[in-house]
Design a protein around this nucleic acid. Structure first.
Lengths: 186, 186
DNA sequence: GTCTATAAGGAGATAGAC
DNA sequence: GTCTATCTCCTTATAGAC
């Protein structure tokens, strides 16, 4: 971690890394301050609780996911290729992340829907992905009898399943199979 | 919990309930012994560690999942109806579980692939579900250009995504949409 | 704003009585 | 086999010096 990062930036970076790769419940405040190389008083100066750290983490991941997606997609115009490129994006993310799955599914699996703020952020993130796919698929020529909305939902679910499988198996095999066959389904 | 259950049965029942609904890392030994109404010495007489409890939990869930599936399917012969019934099974499980998702995906999300024994049990469970679907789809008349194996994998991934979505949204909406449209895809 | 020291309670696990 | 008492370490969070 760069020495030039501010205390707050080091907290945010370390928290994100540990919550994602090691789990929220399995990551202690003490480990965060040790790896961020800061004092515990500084952490509680910037964030009022561990839950506050979690909510900030989810907000940042939400922003990062879609801004990086826009960058990844920016030079592609053809709808068919954009759909493949969306899958490429999730393949790339999994490879970079050491096949650790989806940030939001992991948090949902760990803490369920009991915390309303967390549950809302997870639902909203997944709905945004669905809407992104729906918009993309609207401009398709499709042979399917299914509605575009129905198709978008089905495709979204396949990708979600393939990302979950990526975390289980430690590879992107299912995402790649999906990429090869998805255009035949729609 | 029945007073007639043995100490070991009460440990197993309580552990399964808490690990599933509350999470592995979020469930302490002290809570298990309190809710099972046993002494901590008794727990460590039957299981040598918390990891041992976890491995036993996954083994039991594996057995329960497929034996209950066989019971659920036993009177249905037509492949098309069996496929729908497989989805019905997962809908029923989610409704009974208060939409808490898949036991194995949750554990993978919580502790990753670092523990080899746990990782193997998760992989094997998911592979068994895939094989079950593959066998079922082999006997289909399909209009699709995709291979039966490819179709089985795609369908498996859709169901997995819909179960994950069930846990996020607290309903079975995606599983039900999937049930309605799946026969048109194959 | 960042730091150290510490509170108050919970974690997993063991020893040894009965 | 089941129990109580206890060990050691770690958890989140706060107080108050600089």
């Amino acid at each position: 971690m760069s020495e030039k990062m501010s205390v707050k930036e080091r907290i945010v970076e370390t928290t994100a890394r540990l919550f994602y790769h090691q789990g929220f419940n399995n990551t202690g405040i003490n480990q965060i301050i040790a790896e961020a190389n800061i004092a515990i008083g500084s952490l509680y100066n910037h964030f009022k609780s561990k839950e506050d750290l979690l909510l900030n983490y989810l907000e940042q991941e939400e922003i990062t996911f879609f801004s990086n997606l826009d960058l990844f997609m920016k030079d592609e115009q053809k709808p068919e290729k954009k759909l493949l490129k969306f899958i490429d994006y999730r393949i790339q993310l999994q490879k970079q992340a050491g096949y650790s799955g989806c940030h939001f599914i992991k948090i949902n699996a760990e803490i369920g829907r009991e915390n309303e703020k967390v549950a809302t952020r997870v639902i909203n993130h997944k709905q945004k992905q669905r809407d992104y796919l729906k918009n993309l698929i609207q401009s398709f020529d499709s042979n399917s009898n299914l509605s575009k909305e129905n198709l978008a939902n089905i495709i979204f679910l396949m990708i979600e399943g393939a990302v979950a499988s990526s975390s289980i198996k430690g590879n992107t095999q299912d995402l790649e199979v999906l990429r090869k066959t998805i255009l035949e389904l729609i």
